[in-house]
């Protein structure tokens, strides 16, 4: 087993608003190893992105705050660092790819300039060395004729190419951990397939650890070795991708899988989860999933289930699973 690079323990990130406290992330724990891809799956507003932003300590303060937990990157607790020290970690140690390349790139700078910015800032390089690094970053992402592309503006590139540029920025400083927040959701199916294959290559070459945030189980199966399923601010099940697909234990995981139409199966009627996810401002007591759960019992209404390890590396928080 390779070395654990990131360990998140009991992370709690809340948003303090006029209407009350939004418990966006409420006790999340997981770890990622070097060269591994860990998937965070869930519906919108379940806390996936807030978890990512907490790791980077980029929550919009003062409303958003990390109120508890520990985040160890290679042994250092990121939550104990000063703001200046934390800046040195961003970009160089941890970087992030966002969903929509059209909004994450600056339209008035060439892509070369935008990659160079992070190279200069985080690696302290200057002059020709910067260009060399920029070109090697573009090469890593298999961008054809990088010397030419680096002088282009984002609007001159296609969606797939733009997202590769975003990838090049993220990888330009050789980070140990990469957080990819729905990087392929805005791409077309065949381009998405290209991008995922490309990223697996990049990972093999650089041994970077990846947290892959997505709502698509297809992408999880393709990319991740292990996966955590999030619901209403908590990870309800963690396991290897293999086990999640074969024997999902938490009723939410299996319901989510059943409600996605499969291309290789003909179905007349989809299973649908009744109701909607709870408001994070006003969470139900007990298990967060019980109002929508098909197998809920009295205890689910009263007490929150603890996380149980049912087999090696397979954690579930559910009263019905033993």
């Amino acid at each position: 087993m390779s070395k654990v690079i990131l360990r998140v323990e009991d992370l709690r990130s809340f948003f303090f608003t006029r209407k009350g406290v939004v418990k966006a992330v409420d006790g999340v724990s997981f770890y990622v190893c070097e060269g591994e891809t860990f998937g965070l799956v869930g519906e919108s507003a379940c806390g996936k992105t807030v978890t990512a932003l907490s790791i980077l300590r980029l929550l919009p303060e003062p409303a958003g705050q990390i109120v508890g937990g520990k985040i160890f990157l290679d042994g250092t607790n990121l939550l104990e660092l000063s703001k200046e020290e934390m800046r040195k970690y961003r970009g160089r140690m941890i970087s992030m790819i966002l969903q929509d390349p059209m909004t994450s790139l600056n339209p008035v700078y060439t892509v070369g300039d935008q990659i160079a910015e992070s190279v200069r800032l985080h690696q302290g390089l200057q002059g020709e060395k910067v260009d060399e690094e920029v070109i090697s970053a573009l090469r890593l992402l298999k961008i054809p004729s990088p010397e030419m592309i680096m002088r282009n503006y984002p609007f001159q590139l296609s969606g797939g190419m733009r997202q590769r540029v975003v990838g090049a920025i993220a990888m330009s400083c050789h980070p140990r951990l990469l957080i990819a927040d729905e990087p392929t959701t805005a791409l077309d199916a065949t381009i998405q397939a290209q991008y995922l294959t490309l990223f697996k290559d990049v990972q093999k070459q650089t041994n970077v650890a990846i947290i892959f945030i997505t709502h698509d189980f297809g992408v999880v199966g393709n990319m991740c070795q292990r996966v955590g399923v999030m619901y209403a601010g908590k990870i309800v099940e963690t396991a290897t991708t293999r086990e999640i697909f074969k024997t999902p234990k938490h009723p939410y995981t299996s319901a989510l899988m059943d409600s996605v139409p499969r291309l290789d199966q003909k179905g007349d009627r989809l299973y649908s989860i009744k109701g909607q996810p709870p408001s994070l401002r006003d969470l139900p007591p007990g298990c967060r999933f019980f109002p929508r759960c098909p197998v809920a019992e009295d205890i689910c209404r009263q007490k929150e289930p603890a996380e149980v390890e049912i087999s090696e590396g397979h954690f579930v928080s559910c009263w019905k699973v033993k």
């Binding site: 409600s259 139409p261 649908s272």
Partner: peptide, 14 residues
């Protein structure tokens, strides 16, 4: 729409 809601709408349309 969200994954769990998609199924509801598709069933409704059918």
């Amino acid at each position: 729409l969200d994954v769990s809601i998609r199924a509801q709408i598709m069933n409704l349309l059918k």
